[in-house]
Amino acid sequence: MTAPLGRRVAAEAIGTGLLVTVVVGSGIQATELSHDVGVQLLANSLATVFGLGVLITLLGPVSGAHFNPAVTLAAWATGRRTGEGPGLREVAAYVPAQVAGAIAGAVLADAMFGEPLVRFSTQHRSAGHLLLGEVVATGGLVLLVLGLERVGRAALAPAVVASYIGAAYWFTSSTSFANPAVTIGRAFTDTFAGIAPGSVAPFIGAQLLGVVVGLTAVTVVYGRRDRAATATATATATTAAAATAAATTATAVVAPHDEPELASP
């Protein structure tokens, strides 16, 4: 049963806000506990992995746990052909909620650690190799999220998506922002996880390019999906499930009395 739009928007705002709180707060904590940048990044990435996994598990059943305009746009782009996914109304509601939540999350993290509530970051991250890292990180995320849905493994999203983000912290030059809303939110804190306002637009541009790359990869790997194909796949799955259930029932009925009956589900 789909939750009302208001509840879904609230889940996106809260989820994105708490995600940024985890990212920024753990970054502040890490710099207070260690002067080793490698240790700081390790602490920051581990906290993000655990926090993201929990948030997807908790809020996914309500809104889909996008927490990311890039994911929302990718889901909308693929849903136009299949009749699934968010419509323009949902996109128009989700994206501002994600951005507002991200900013609030950064302010909350700063407040918890006694930092100025709003102090724009001075960390410039606009080099070309960093932007390439964002294209790769975002494209991989889109491929992962949509790929899990295509292969019927969406239930694994909390663990798999969190694991990917944790890995991308280390294998991308940009430490994998991969999220326009989070990028904007992190501009509001001059701490370990911050990004200078002047670097925000190039990062978001790279992330949007990553969405295109990810959607292209999904089409290349899984093929184009339209409404008819989706309906056929659904009907096939339903028929297969009914046939399996019928076969199981028949086996239980004809089993000899001296053999153990099938266990009840």
Rank of each mutant, 00 (worst) to 15 (best):
R119D: 09
A97C: 08
L131Y: 03
L146Y: 02
E115M: 14
A167K: 04
Q98E: 05
F120H: 07
I165Y: 01
F113R: 10
A157C: 10
S121C: 06
P96V: 09
G140Q: 06
R119H: 05
A167W: 01
L148Q: 06
A97N: 04
A104C: 08
D110S: 15
L146K: 10
A157Y: 08
T138Q: 08
A168Y: 14
R125Y: 07
R150Q: 11
V160K: 03
L130C: 06
A106H: 02
Y169F: 15
L144F: 15
V107P: 00
A162S: 11
G139I: 00
V135E: 11
L144K: 09
V145M: 04
D110L: 14
Q98W: 01
E149W: 15
G101P: 04
L117F: 12
L148K: 04
Y94V: 13
S173R: 14
A154I: 12
Y164P: 07
G152S: 06
V118R: 07
L117P: 05
R150K: 10
D110M: 15
A127G: 12
S126C: 09
A137L: 10
F171T: 13
E115A: 10
Y94E: 08
L131I: 10
S121H: 07
G166N: 04
P116A: 03
E134Y: 01
S173V: 14
L132H: 03
G114Y: 01
V142R: 00
L131E: 04
G114E: 02
M112H: 12
A93Q: 09
G140D: 03
S126I: 10
Y169M: 13
L146C: 09
L131F: 05
S163M: 15
L141I: 08
V136C: 01
L130I: 08
G133H: 02
A167R: 07
F171N: 12
Y169D: 14
T138H: 14
V107K: 00
L131P: 03
Y164L: 13
E134F: 05
T122K: 08
L131H: 01
T122L: 06
S163R: 13
V107I: 11
L146F: 01
G128H: 08
A106C: 05
Y169E: 10
G140L: 07
T122V: 09
R150I: 02
V142H: 03
E149C: 14
G101C: 05
L117W: 11
L131T: 07
A102N: 09
L130P: 08
A167D: 08
L141S: 13
A168R: 08
H124A: 11
G105C: 02
G152T: 15
S174R: 13
R125H: 11
L146M: 09
Y169V: 12
G114V: 07
I165N: 06
A157L: 14
L146P: 04
Y169S: 11
E134P: 00
V107R: 01
F171K: 05
Y94C: 13
S121D: 00
T172K: 08
V145A: 04
P96Q: 05
A109T: 00
R153A: 15
